[in-house]
Design a binder for these strands. Structure first.
Length: 548
RNA sequence: GGCCUGUUGGAGAAGCGGCUUAACUCACAUGCCUUUCACGCAUGCAUUCAUGGGUUCGAAUCCCGUACAGGUCACCA
């Protein structure tokens, strides 16, 4: 009669290592007390999702604030869904947010002593553990075809029995080793299933860092741990990887809660210590009155690249995400007058349990704050960097005269309350086009108030062009404008104007508006003095004179 | 359908049995400031905490039912 040993050798003849070997190869980490080892473990199946960025950011923050280790692990076991190049894209985008792994998979090779960090390269590790389980009789080959599995499921559904491959429905669990060997030798395709010893009627308890004590039915399904392609399923890979990578805290989406009993069972049966779990809420969106997950297909904001392309500063998004993660963060930013997220102490306990609705308004708010608080030089660099990737027309303008451009985007920045015009870099061009003659010429001239006749406008604007002060301080310049306005029949003080509107052409605002229209082509603009100062005497004169 | 989780203003939320006439932030509205806009400042915006019942002198806060929402039941993660 054949033994488990015969089976194991037939299944995995190439595996010579044992679990003990692996334990030695990947020893416990020696880290300071309380240091957390976390990881972000995406599948390379497309671009970086906003929800993934959130998850990665939390894992990163948790590791960093505890002086721990943050890893990046590629879960590329689903070869059918893998999209070539997406892994590197994921890493690149994460890097833009400063989320750089201490250890993990990188485009130019792994970094760290607990690798490989790519599941497809860890097949031997998984097989070593599986061989061990086979030897112990805790796992077995299953020969059911997809059709046969479907039959079992149909039967269960028809009879209102809990669906799944478990207990009496785990057909191949009862095969003898001799039968198993015979089928393998006959070339029957197989997968490896884990022989669950769980009882569905019993509850299993575990502590979630965010949700507290959770109680779920124990798992009794003989889950597949190795697929027919020789690669592990998520459940098994998670347990093996996070054990041998010595992960201390697993942060993942809340969709994993129902399968956590499987993971805990696996850890327990393998004699390993399970990590702490933190099941993160998912970012949602309101769709016809219902909350739903951000969808890659329907929602542009589901892709991180959307924000990057629009020119949101990375920190703006990060600040927003942190405000969702820990709502006390917002108060912290106010009392600490800081938007430096890295100084804030994040806590799982302060996390909301249900998914927040993505709020573009709030993102814009934080992003404006971030941009307004960014030092001039740094802002200039960031905008140029963005333009070089995303906006040819803006880049052209920047390169024409860098100093000029820098002044434009930093208007009224040195004041106690700086302007907050831009939530994203793509807001810059529509707000500054008039600084560029080429664009200025393209725009139709905005009409002046009809109550002023042409001769008067010509005289007034001509006088302003020639006589207003250039290269002066704001008050000097404004005084000169006021004098000219007064000489042309405008009321300098609003009080005078209100007392006797008939006596004047208009109040000083009306005069300023005429100048503003002539110079900027719009009724609203940034501070006129600074605009004129930046445009320069020559250009201002030309515009005032051609306005008529 | 089974199981899990959740439900406080338009949004993020604080609150966890009396200090709450429900904090704070965003959005929105109005006003002030101002040469316009933006900034800033001020005020307003939930008589009510999904709903029905119970416990209690007292409930958003504790218990039960109902409704609604989300998640999950794969050789996908």
């Amino acid at each position: 009669m054949a033994t488990y040993n015969d089976l194991a050798e037939l299944l995995f003849p190439e595996i010579t290592k044992t679990i003990e070997d692996l334990e030695k190869e990947y020893p416990e980490r020696s880290l300071p007390e309380g240091a957390q080892v976390t990881r972000f473990a995406p599948s390379p199946t497309g671009f970086l999702h906003t929800g993934s960025l959130f998850t990665a950011y939390i894992a990163y923050t948790f590791a960093k604030q505890s002086q721990g280790v943050y890893m990046f692990r590629l879960e590329d076991t689903d070869t059918k869904r893998t999209i070539a190049g997406s892994a590197d894209e994921l890493i690149d985008q994460l890097e833009e947010f400063g989320i750089i792994a201490d250890e993990g998979y990188f485009a130019n090779g792994d970094k760290g002593a607990y690798g490989p960090y790519q599941q497809s390269a860890r097949a031997d590790i998984y097989k070593t553990v599986i061989k061990h389980l086979i030897l112990e009789g805790k796992a077995y080959p299953d020969f059911c075809s997809a059709e046969e599995l479907q039959k079992i499921r149909d039967f269960q559904e028809a009879n209102k029995i809990l669906p799944g491959y478990y207990g009496p429905y785990a057909r191949d669990r009862k095969l003898t080793v001799d039968e198993q060997i015979e089928k393998i030798k006959a070339g029957t395709p197989w997968v490896i299933r884990y022989k669950s010893n769980g009882d569905h009627n019993k509850k299993i308890k575990f502590k979630d860092s965010i949700r507290g004590e959770l109680e779920l039915a124990d798992n009794d399904v003989d889950i597949v741990i190795m697929k027919s392609d020789g690669l592990p399923t998520y459940h098994f890979a998670h347990v093996v990887d996070d054990h041998f990578m010595r992960t201390t805290a697993v942060t993942r989406g809340e969709e994993w809660i129902p399968s956590t009993p499987i993971h805990i069972q696996l850890f327990r049966d393998l004699g390993w210590k399970a990590p702490k779990y933190a099941h993160l809420p998912v970012i949602m969106k309101l769709d016809h009155g219902n909350k739903r997950k951000l969808s890659k297909r329907k929602d542009p904001e589901a892709a991180v690249s959307y924000f990057l392309k629009a020119g949101y500063p990375a920190r703006g998004l990060l600040v927003y995400l942190m405000s969702i993660a820990n709502s006390n963060f917002e108060e912290w930013t106010i009392t600490n007058k800081s938007l430096d997220v890295s100084k804030f102490t994040f806590s799982f306990k302060k996390m909301a349990l249900d998914g927040a609705l993505f709020d573009e308004n709030k993102l814009n708010y934080f992003s404006k704050e971030v941009i307004a608080a960014t030092p001039k030089e740094e802002l200039f660099k960031a905008v140029k960097e963005w333009a070089s990737k995303n906006s040819e027309s803006l880049l052209k303008k920047i390169e024409m005269d860098e100093e000029y451009f820098s002044k434009i985007i930093n208007i009224e920045k040195d004041r106690p309350n700086p302007r907050k015009d831009y939530a994203k870099y793509s807001d810059i061009e529509p707000a500054t086009w008039f600084f560029y003659d080429e664009d200025f010429a393209k725009h139709d001239a905005l009409p002046f108030d009809e109550k002023f006749d042409k001769d008067f406008l010509k005289a007034f604007l001509g006088e302003v062009a020639d006589k207003q002060l250039y290269n002066a301080t704001e008050s000097e310049w404004w005084n000169s404008v006021k004098e000219l306005a007064a000489a042309n029949g405008f009321a300098v003080s609003n009080k005078d104007y209100k007392a006797n509107p008939e006596a004047f052409k208009g109040n000083i605002s009306a005069a300023a508006e005429l100048i503003r229209i002539a110079v900027t082509g719009q009724k609203d603009s940034q501070n006129l003095h600074e605009v004129i100062d930046i445009l320069g005497e020559e250009r201002v004169k030309a515009r005032l004179k051609s306005a008529i």
